[in-house]
Design a binder for these strands. Sequence first.
RNA 1: CCCCUCAUAGCUCAAUGGUAGAGCCGUCGGCUGUAGCCCGACUCGUGCCAGUUCGAUUCUGGCUGAGGGGA
Length: 425
Amino acid sequence: MNNLKFTITAQDGKARTGVIEINGKSVETPEFMSVATRAEVKTLSLDELNELNVRMIICNTYHLMLEPGADVVKKKGGLHKFMGGFKGIVATDSGGFQAFSLGAGKEFGTNKLYFPKKEDYKEFRKTPKLSKKDFERKRQNSRLFKVLYKNKKKKQESFADITDNGVKFKSVYDDSLQFLSPEKSIEVQEKLGADIILVLDECTSPLHSKKYNEKSLKRTHDWAKRCLSARKTKQALVGIVQGSEWKDLRERSAKFIASLPFDSYAIGGALGKSKKEMYEIISWVVPHLKGGKPIHLLGVGTVEDLFECVERGIDLFDCVTPTRMARFGYAYVSPPFGNKKNKFRYKINLKNSGSNEKPIDKNCNCKICKNYAQEELYNLKLRDKKLAHKFFTYHNVYFFLDLMRLIREAIRGGKFEELKRKWGI
RNA sequence: CCCCUCAUAGCUCAAUGGUAGAGCCGUCGGCUGUAGCCCGACUCGUGCCAGUUCGAUUCUGGCUGAGGGGA
């Protein structure tokens, strides 16, 4: 019944390397999954994914059920074939995150992760008797201000409505009404045919109260059980821990999820009000996820986070960071140029790259860095934005996969701390 | 040599006898289980010289420059 095999191969503190084997495919962990929401890593072709040695991707139930539809994917023989013959491991997210990002996320005007700065608090205490221009200026510099102002002034229309039964959605494609229950999510994910599927959960907003989270957690746990009993296939099923920023909720959730016969675990939801809190939350949860199963931290993945979370025992990551940043014109860079302050990335613009004859990252061996100077890439961006974004995506994905390789090597050699220091984290 | 058209932001173009707009580019900020190659903010301008007018980027003349046509 459980066709996912996870072997831990080395340990360095809580950081560990391992191998996930499933359906004749394998991936070494810790690994970073590229996000392929609609069964494509945006801008990249299947050949490029192979060239990059992308071993694991995550697609999205919500988007695929709406476009092109689960039955269409099934008719093609499942996601691997639908993609043209992807040879790596495919996971599908349940659609739970969209219930948040298109629901409460829109309503509260916030993201799943939300780290207000000190200034934000100060700013909010001031009554906003400002000129329109000054108000705008401050607003853009203050996320908290923005969130609370929006919340007070104009609630955005929510695209989702959550009840114990499931989630009512308005499709972002055609405004049609859709419904996703735990059973429906599993049914759709079975049709999509990924190797690994996720339970439907409720991802709460960082602005939801503890009281709401208690209610929501019960629902998420109930849904987890319903997903388990709904599954008819041999697809590996992943249970998701929620509980937002509260220790008792997180621990309760971790124990509950670990008590159920899941093939793997994931940590989801809001992760506190600072990076420190986020890492602390992970430390609370991981020790309870026993049984030698892989632990996936959902949706997290800045360079700094990868180090901090691997250190706390995370095996799998997925994040839009490398691909989205590429489309927004940023390239990732390693030390010494890349550092914690610049988030290991910088913008390919006139100032930085307009007459820069060096590659993006002199330590990078990807074909973009080997073949193109920054000024060429900058000019390409002016000429052919799409192609430039493909190049940046290619580099960024390579960068993240290579970083994971470095991390695995370091763990195997007992030198994880050394690598972390080398990266200034 | 003559005629016509044109001259507005770094670029491509709007508009107007009464404080000149947009798109692109640029700069800064944002983006963490992808609705969004996106979202904010900001910088920069009427070719030159006269005339008419309370007021000209707009109307008139000349100059300069670009394109087209005719001898």
